[in-house]
Write a protein that binds this DNA or RNA. Structure first.
Lengths: 205, 205
DNA sequence: AGGAAAACATACGGTTCGTATGTCAGTGAG
DNA sequence: CTCACTGACATACGAACCGTATGTTTTCCT
């Protein structure tokens, strides 16, 4: 049948199976959703049994947690690159919001991170994204307030609200239409609305 | 044991059992979450069997849908009353945002409507809240744009974003602290941030 | 080389959901 | 008034799924 154990070291063995389980889980969660994804199916798709899954992730919830963590890291990496491309912090911040919205159109991100994860992980997700995009938004906002570029208020609360606005906008764009034309039009409308919302934060005395 | 069928008409019978099932489901979903709530428990709490539940709601998902619909109606009713109390539409709109945020601190609303329902119902929820708070927000915004009170952009997209901002703000406030003191402080911070965000929408030429 | 521990695979029980079927009380027509 | 009919449930059954407990093989360390 499969490869007759091609002589891997212990570390390589573990790394490969976890990677395959993560990949299979991402596919299953993205297409069928968390609740409707059976662990048997995921494990069969990854070429292992449920024993391996429980050994590495402790259960279904742990698997989702690892998937979300992985996706979050990928998003954050792209956001970091985008931020570095702009000299002006306010311009960079708005470019990051724009890039986040575009990335969040990915059905994988939508289903896993924006819809299922909040329900399943709950508070765990809040602790998790203390190291994700939210904290960067908050820090950027705090710096911009200090420099007087935007109006001063609670940075953490404002960061949460901007994050929520972007999340709902992404879900709205994705649900707007299945054909790519309507999708693109909805994205433009959302970006315009986001511009209005963010413009209002600018300080103008 | 229970009442020996106190001679109810068919309509009363149906109405009472649906009401009891809805009440029991609200309690269970709010405290244990949708996934962890067993239908056996809900039915036992309501004093009926699973047959009644399937007869009236078609299944677990239909039950959640009915619960969300009921809660949504309650919220909308309070929002309508608040809006009528203000002569100025812009003042009324901001008062409604404030009232929504305060209402959304209810753990029942948080768990059922803001966390579980989007994951379980998905697109069904989008269709459902076409008759809920979102549509009122959108119409209010559209009217305010026409009257030149706020900056003009896509009303639907902006309504979605404001809704998302309020949702995340409510979740953030609720997660801020368990003791009522911290809760109240976080609410104040969120309301202040919301004021900044909405102030920016005002038109000032 | 030999024991320990990691890295899985396998077997099993318990819980839960949906459906299929059965039963009984209202209800309307004749 | 009665009798067929239907709505409003209750009960029984099968299937899927999750978690754990246990067994087995391979690698690593001394």
């Amino acid at each position: 049948m499969g490869e007759p154990a091609p002589r891997r070291s212990r570390g390589e063995m573990s790394e490969q199976t976890t990677a395959q389980l993560l990949a299979a889980a991402r596919r299953a969660f993205a297409t069928s959703g968390y609740a409707a994804s059976a662990m048997d199916t995921i494990c069969a798709d990854a070429g292992v049994t449920r024993g391996a899954l429980y050994h590495h992730f402790g259960g279904k919830e742990g698997l989702l947690e690892a998937v979300v963590y992985q996706i979050d890291a990928e998003i954050s990496a792209r956001l970091d690159m985008e931020e570095k491309r702009h000299a002006d912090p306010w311009v960079g911040f708005r470019a990051c919001c724009r890039l986040w919205l575009e990335q969040a159109l990915d059905p994988e991100i939508q289903r896993i991170c924006l819809r299922d994860a909040p329900s399943v992980l709950g508070q765990k997700l809040r602790d998790l994204d203390e190291i994700s995009a939210i904290v960067e938004i908050r820090d950027s906002l705090a710096a911009l307030m200090l420099s007087g570029r935007i109006r001063a208020t609670d940075p953490e609360a404002l960061a949460r609200m901007i994050n929520g606005a972007l999340v709902d906008a992404a879900l709205w764009v994705a649900a707007a239409g299945d054909q790519p034309g309507a999708q693109h039009a909805a994205l433009d409308r959302a970006l315009a609305a986001a511009d209005v919302l963010l413009d209002g934060l600018e300080r103008r005395d």
